[in-house]
Simulated assay, not measured.
Amino acid sequence: MANKLENNIYCGPCESQHLTNIAELWCPNCTEGLCSTCLKYHNVSKSTRMHKTITIENLTTLPDFVRDIDYAYSNHSNVLDLYCSVHEKTCCMDCITIDHSECPGITSLVKVVQGVKESAFYHSIMKNIEDLTEYASKVQKNRNENADKLQQEKRFLVEKVKSKRREITSHLDKLEEDLLQQIDSTMTQESQQINEAVSNLQTKIDTLAEYKGQISSMIENATEVQTFLGLKEIDKKIVKEEENMSRMVVEPGMKETSVNMEFANEIGGLVEEIKLVGTLELNKVTTAMHYAGTKSQLAKSLSNIKSGIDNIKLSCINKFQIPFNFQGKKIFAVVLY
């Protein structure tokens, strides 16, 4: 492409004369810009008057790889006027001799590109683009639906985790309540037994103190006979009190009582053993939305072109038979190819 200075394209023929004139038009065949003066010679020259020029503005709308297409082969300096359908490359006569000598289907480039803008090749590419765009849009919609589905699944899973947590919490609360009630009931029962034992012991202490007072009164006020007989009577009562005390010491309220508690194995190892509340399972399935690609129509049509005498095949045009005995002569069947 012609040199650019400050985003301007300069006339190619003028540049070859060391002149700098801004190009007004562009010749895709010559791959250079043309000023108004050089355009006049370009339009009347035998080698270029059939070239179609375009405006510089239209040139800028072309893709870079299209603007950079050059019709001259740099290695051989020949015009690329042939096309190899095997390698799908443009070439010149020197290219064919060196690189494509055994390639069938070498075709004139002019013949290949003739009517290309309205050809089945053009419509095939446009159809492929439309099909691929439609397929990509369907897949895009499918992926968006999958993303929306994942958000719904996220909300469901989050609620499922919270629900399970509430279920576990509610169950633990119930177990806690039952255990606390059991602790309270046990402590109350044991305390009542101890309090009852304390009360019974206090009764005995009071009784013994009463016996002691009675003895003191007898010592001070009774005769010896009364004291002796009174002591004998109190002695009998003391024996009964000893017997009662012996029975009392084995009662539940007289035993040294303490309450301990051990958690169930599942609860005791809850923190150590339960490291996860749950696990996620990620399922990935290849989408069933397959795209059936198509082979280039140009490649298909050109691949059917064969060259060389070895590829010549006979085809039957007509077949008929003349009677064997005709005017006394023996005639054979004739087949035309």
Rank of each mutant, 00 (worst) to 15 (best):
Y73H: 15
D131P: 03
I9Y: 05
L59N: 04
V158F: 01
K236E: 10
R165P: 07
L175A: 06
P63Q: 02
D178W: 09
F228P: 08
Y41N: 12
N221L: 13
H18Y: 08
Q214F: 08
T133A: 07
N29Q: 09
S74A: 15
T97L: 10
R67H: 07
T287S: 06
N7Y: 01
L302K: 01
I267C: 06
R143L: 14
C30F: 10
I98P: 00
Y135H: 00
Q297E: 13
I98R: 10
I106H: 00
S307H: 05
V335E: 03
N21K: 07
L302A: 10
T133V: 10
E167W: 01
E262T: 06
S74C: 12
Q152I: 06
I56R: 04
V116N: 10
G105R: 00
N244S: 08
L132R: 13
C11K: 00
R165Y: 08
N144K: 09
C92L: 03
H42K: 02
V225Y: 03
C14P: 02
S163L: 11
L5A: 08
S137N: 04
R143W: 02
W26N: 01
E24Q: 12
N221D: 12
G115C: 05
Q17N: 14
T169P: 04
K204V: 15
G293K: 10
T279I: 08
F324S: 15
S191C: 12
T53I: 05
F65W: 11
L231I: 15
N146K: 03
N58G: 07
E130F: 02
K127L: 08
G230A: 02
Y73L: 14
E145A: 04
K164L: 07
N58K: 15
D206M: 06
Y83C: 03
L175H: 06
S101V: 15
T279G: 07
P28M: 02
E233I: 11
Y10C: 02
F320Y: 11
K313Y: 09
G293Q: 06
V277L: 09
L80H: 01
F324N: 15
K40W: 03
Q140F: 01
T186K: 13
D64H: 10
A120I: 14
Q114A: 14
G308H: 06
K330C: 11
K255S: 07
D64G: 07
R143F: 02
K284A: 11
K329W: 07
A222Y: 14
I234C: 08
Y135T: 05
S246D: 13
